[in-house]
Design a protein around this nucleic acid. Structure first.
Lengths: 204, 204
DNA sequence: GTCTATAAAATGATAGAC
DNA sequence: GTCTATCATTTTATAGAC
C-alpha cells in the first residue's frame, strides 16, 4: 500500500515534503475533501511528480496514518507500571495535552478519520490500539484494587483523558470562538483545570 | 440561503425526506466527502428532483446546520440559574450524554464541521454559542463564588462536559473498537463514570 | 525525476419534456 | 413535481517527451 523504503537523498526529501503537505491538507479537509492538486501545490511539486512517489491519493493517506500511529500511541505506552499511580496518570494526561498543543494536525487527521467511522484505520484500532489499552487498563485496575487510586472504570478513564486533551486540538476552532479574540493560549488554563479534575477524581 | 417555508404537504414531506437523508450522509462523510447523488439515493429521489427543493448541495448543508443548532444548544439553555448547583451541572451532563446516544448523527455533523475549522458555521459559534456560554459561565462562576461548587474554570468546565459526552457519539467507532465486540452499550457505564467524575470535581 | 498534455471518471447543476 | 438527458467542471490518474 505504501512505497518501499526510500533509497536516495532526493527520494527521502520529496517523500518527506509530500508527507508534510499531506498532513496539513488531510487534517484540514478530511480524506475526501482533500485533492491531490492541493497537496502537490502545498509541497511545491507538480501533480504527476507527486504521483511518481505515491501510487494514489489513498496511498499517501495510508502512509501518513501508519507513520503517525506510533507518535499517537507513545504517551500511553509510556505509562509506567511501577510509577506512582496518580503521578503516572497526570503525566500521561499532560503528555497528551502537550501533543494536542504541539501536533494539532496529527490529532485532527485521526479525528477526521474516526468521526467518519474509521473506514481506513479500523484494523489498527481493533488490534494495536485495543491491545495497548487492554494492557494499560489492567495496570490501572491493579492500582485501584491496591487502594492507590480511587476506584472507577479504567477504560472510561482512558477515554476521558483522550477526549479532554484532544478537544483542544480537534475543536480548536470552537474553543477559540467561545473564548473570544482577546483570549490568550488556552493550554495553560487547560492543564491547571485537568490536573485538578483528575486529582479530585482519582485521589484515594 | 435556505428555501422559503414549505407551503404544500408534498413540499414539507420531501424537504423532511431530504433533510433526514442529508443528515445521514453529511454526518458520515463530511461536507466535501458527501455527494448530491448519495443524498438523493438515500432519500429515494432523483438528483434533479432533490435540486428542485434546494438550490445547491451547500444550501442543504446550511439548512441542516441552522435547523439543528437549537437542538444542539437546548441542554445548555436549560441550565437553571435557581436550581441546586451540582444537580444542575449533572443534569446538563446527562442531557448531553443522552443526546450523544439518541442523536449521534447530529453530533457528528457538527464534529465534522468544527474539526475542519468550522468554515460554514463560524458565525454561529462566535455569536449564538459564545453568548450562551458567556451567560452560563457567569451563573457557574456565581455558584463557585458562593461556595456552592468547588472553584474551577467555568469555561473549561463547559468544554469538558462537551468533550466527554460527545466523545461517545463522535468517536463511537474507536470506543467500540477498543471495548471489543463482546461489549454492551457503553452509555450506562459512561453515565456512572461521568457522574462520579463531576461530583468529585465540583463538590465543595 | 520532472514536466506538459490528456484521458477517464465523478460530480454539481441545468434544460426541457411530460 | 418529476423525469431523462446533458453540460461544465473538477479530480484522479496516466502517457510520453525531455
Amino acid at each position: 500500500m505504501t512505497k518501499p523504503v526510500p533509497r536516495t537523498r532526493i527520494q527521502r526529501k520529496n517523500i518527506a515534503l509530500i508527507s508534510e503537505a499531506a498532513l496539513s491538507v488531510f487534517s484540514t479537509h478530511g480524506f475526501r475533501g482533500s485533492t491531490v492538486d492541493q497537496i502537490a501545490r502545498e509541497a511545491n511539486l507538480s501533480k504527476p511528480n507527486l504521483l511518481y512517489y505515491f501510487p494514489s491519493k489513498e496511498a499517501i493517506h495510508q502512509h501518513l496514518l501508519s507513520m503517525l500511529m506510533d507518535t499517537w500511541l507513545a504517551p500511553l505506552k509510556a505509562l509506567q507500571d511501577d510509577g506512582e499511580p496518580l503521578e503516572e496518570i497526570l503525566t500521561y494526561m499532560r503528555r497528551k495535552l502537550q501533543m494536542s498543543r504541539d501536533h494539532p494536525r496529527e490529532s485532527r487527521l485521526f479525528a477526521n478519520e474516526i468521526v467518519q467511522g474509521a473506514p481506513r484505520i479500523m484494523d489498527m484500532l481493533e488490534t494495536e490500539l485495543k491491545e495497548l489499552v487492554d494492557e494499560k487498563a489492567k495496570v490501572i485496575e491493579a492500582w485501584m484494587a491496591a487502594g492507590k487510586l480511587a476506584p472507577s472504570d479504567p477504560y472510561h478513564l482512558i477515554f476521558s483523558i483522550w477526549s479532554l486533551t484532544q478537544h483542544y486540538a480537534d475543536f480548536d476552532a470552537q474553543v477559540h470562538a467561545v473564548l473570544g479574540p482577546g483570549h490568550d493560549d488556552p493550554f495553560p488554563e487547560a492543564e491547571t483545570y485537568l490536573t485538578t479534575l483528575f486529582t479530585r477524581l482519582l485521589q484515594p
